[in-house]
């Protein structure tokens, strides 16, 4: 088409590729961590404690980003931390999305008593303070990867339910939905074929945002020591440890922080990029 939409898309593509690139890199790091890590992330060596990163004086070869106060390799710990972060992002994000979006779609499209039940449930759910709720939850089921994922899903499904419900309602009021029903399409069919594809771009954006949020929540929980066992490296845990020695060894805090920041940013940018790419109206 000759109206310039092509150029717009190409420019937005950069954002999509940068964020997708970073996340792919991270995913690879997570999968391959045991093989590509230069050192054992758990190996302590007090003689090599607080080594600075490679470009500063007094480094030891092989410790690219330096070591923490117990002499553990920061780079290796970040790579291993990616495993927890990515697992949480993918599993918790997807589960939250599936549960929340399904409920939201049902409520927004079917309306009536289904909507009543789901909406009231969402309202009540959202009244709980989320941080307290998750800490409580983990206190009850005990820390661990599963507990973190469960906590995120249990708390955040409301976000999807709310937004998807509103969008499903808006789409459901469109003439094409009425037309489809006149043309003999049943309710389930209308919901899945007519409404869902038009809510999907929104769901994708929410999903990537949620993945970013999941990474943050995991970091927060490990920061307060409620994540998985303290032996396994997590970004949040590293940030917590790095905080105590920030004046002597800033790199222990800064590198995981940068990684976390880029990851969360990438997730949200990925969502925006995908939306621009796949929204049929913007395309």
């Amino acid at each position: 088409m000759a109206d310039g939409r092509g150029q717009v898309r190409r420019r937005l593509g950069l954002r999509l590729w940068l964020s997708a690139g970073w996340l792919t890199l991270l995913l690879l790091a997570a999968v391959l961590a045991p093989w590509i890590s230069p050192k054992d992330p758990l190996a302590q060596d007090l003689f090599l404690a607080r080594l600075p990163p490679f470009w500063m004086d007094g480094t030891e070869p092989g410790y690219w980003l330096g070591t923490d106060s117990l002499g553990r390799d920061v780079l290796s710990r970040i790579l291993h931390g990616a495993r927890v972060a990515m697992t949480v992002a993918l599993v918790a994000g997807t589960l939250t999305c599936v549960i929340g979006a399904t409920l939201g779609l049902l409520a927004g499209f079917l309306r009536g008593w289904v909507d009543m039940v789901i909406s009231r449930l969402t309202d009540i759910w959202m009244a709980f303070p989320p941080v307290l709720f998750s800490i409580l939850l983990i206190a009850v089921i005990g820390p661990g990867l599963g507990a973190i994922i469960l906590a995120i899903v249990v708390i955040d499904w409301t976000r999807f339910a709310r937004v998807v419900r509103a969008e499903a309602m808006a789409q459901g009021a469109m003439d094409y939905v009425a037309s489809a029903q006149v043309a003999g399409r049943g309710r389930t069919g209308t919901m899945l074929v007519e409404v869902l594809p038009n809510v999907l771009p929104l769901i994708v954006v929410l999903l990537t945002l949620e993945m970013g949020i999941a990474v943050i929540v995991e970091a927060i929980l490990s920061f307060v020591n409620l994540s998985i066992s303290t032996d396994d490296p997590t970004w949040g845990g590293m940030i917590a440890e790095g905080r105590t020695s920030v004046h002597q060894a800033w790199w222990v805090l800064v590198f995981p922080l940068i990684t976390l920041f880029l990851t969360v940013l990438s997730f949200s940018q990925l969502g925006e990029g995908l939306k621009d790419r796949f929204d049929p109206v913007l395309r």
Partner: peptide, 18 residues
């Protein structure tokens, strides 16, 4: 579905965009 049809009011919203 077999015997009736609708010509809707607003052509902009009457076709499924996706």
């Amino acid at each position: 579905g077999a015997t009736c049809a609708l010509i809707p009011q607003d052509p902009l919203t009457a076709l499924n965009p996706s």
